[in-house]
Design a protein around this nucleic acid. Structure first.
Lengths: 225, 225
DNA sequence: CGCGAGGTTGACCTTTATCAAACTGTGTGG
DNA sequence: CCACACAGTTTGATAAAGGTCAACCTCGCG
């Protein structure tokens, strides 16, 4: 499914070129094992040794599948985020990289509080997301999603003028749909409506600018009409 | 909001009558602090000392509110279940008892692994619930909910004939709706359709019998039509 | 007996899904 | 370099699931 070897040439991970620079210098603390992933790579969650993982760069999504193929993305992890399937899931859980991604493997035993702290944060995020999935409209979900993604993937804005935020949108419309419990078409329509109303800007999907964060926040909070 | 003192007379907790029996005998291990709650009681999640709680008897729901009052129930805790707001939530999180409920307060520091284990389990449950909210139909959600509740609140069946399960349904239609991301009316219609089709039985809401668990499971798994 | 909370049912309507077609941008091979 | 294939996106027409509104029922309780 993920002919990684064959694509390695086609899609060389940019960071691979730096490996030569990184390995020589000996570091005092335990060097974490680092994984380099290409877009679309499946991440094995074997959970040997209760591995915890930190996204150093890039974007990872966690998802679950229904027997008939329906997919629900349950979390999106950006730089600095922790994840890991800390116990046998009786549900079909998967993780996948959406771009060129660097991940550090962390030995959970070496950082006792880290894993449980990460679990609690994930729980909080997921509770909020349950609220979104169960009780918000398409516009509210989309606005909320944009603000969350901007938070996690914001680019250093060249001009700090205004409170505009620009971020890299690693998710396709399909990913957004599977995250927000909507269809591709509804996501596309909602996004374009936001664009037409001047709340956001984008030319090529992949880089989005939030031009009116307050307005988006108001929509996300259900204060529209 | 929860004039508990004034309702104490009106709705005396059945277990209160036994308090006299329980206090006298000295117990060797640390006696857990026990709370007795009436139906509808709000549970304070102050989180002083990172309290963890175990439901001994009864039913507790965790929920979140949107500014305009929309509610999403994010978890349902039955006997043996653990919960507790282990860290400041930036979202409005609440907990409420749905019946006469006994809760033990557990000092999290006395049971280090317990809290994180509970968090992980909650995370798993919630991931599944996110899938339910984002990707399942009303019938699938309702079937799934019935099976889950039967699991958590099953009564010792008098006759072990067949694989029927009878359980106490502590949730109102409104609670079910807020848990499943539906409306009261849709929950009512779906339940009655299940009843008409002979999948479940109930005379007075409050006690439900699942007469054809396999059929419900098939619906929950999306294998219908 | 009457009240109120919760439940059911029906008619109708809105939101969002579905289906279909066309468009865009990018990499591929002639 | 251009035609092509493709993956992803947009847009429109239509349909269905579920929401909304309203009436009525049921039961427990004062």
């Amino acid at each position: 499914m993920l002919s990684q070897a064959s694509r390695q040439n086609v899609l060389p991970h940019p960071a691979l070129t730096r490996v030569g620079h990184e390995f020589p210098k000996p570091v005092k603390p335990v060097r974490p094992v680092r994984q380099l992933l290409n877009p679309g790579d499946e991440i094995m969650l074997d959970d040997h040794a209760a591995q915890l993982r930190r996204v150093v760069e890039g974007c990872v999504v966690l998802y679950q599948l229904l027997p008939d193929g329906r997919r629900q993305i349950t979390d999106i992890i950006g730089p600095g985020g922790l994840f890991g399937c800390q116990q046998e899931d009786r549900y079909n859980i998967g993780a996948r990289s959406l771009t060129y991604t660097k991940i550090d493997l962390i030995d959970a035993s070496s950082a006792p509080g880290l894993a449980s702290g990460a679990a609690l944060e994930a729980l909080q995020r997921l509770r909020h997301h349950a609220m979104l999935l169960g009780r918000m409209t398409a516009a509210e979900r989309t606005a909320s999603a944009l603000l969350e993604l901007a938070q996690a993937f914001a680019r250093r804005s060249t001009s700090q003028s205004g409170r505009k935020v620009t971020f890299t949108l690693y998710l396709t419309r399909g990913d957004l749909a599977d995250w927000l419990g909507l269809t591709i078409e509804t996501v596309s329509r909602t996004l374009n409506q936001f664009k037409r109303n001047g709340l956001i800007e984008y030319r090529h999907t992949g880089i989005v600018t939030i031009t009116r964060p307050e307005a988006l926040a108001a929509i996300a909070a259900g204060e529209c009409k």
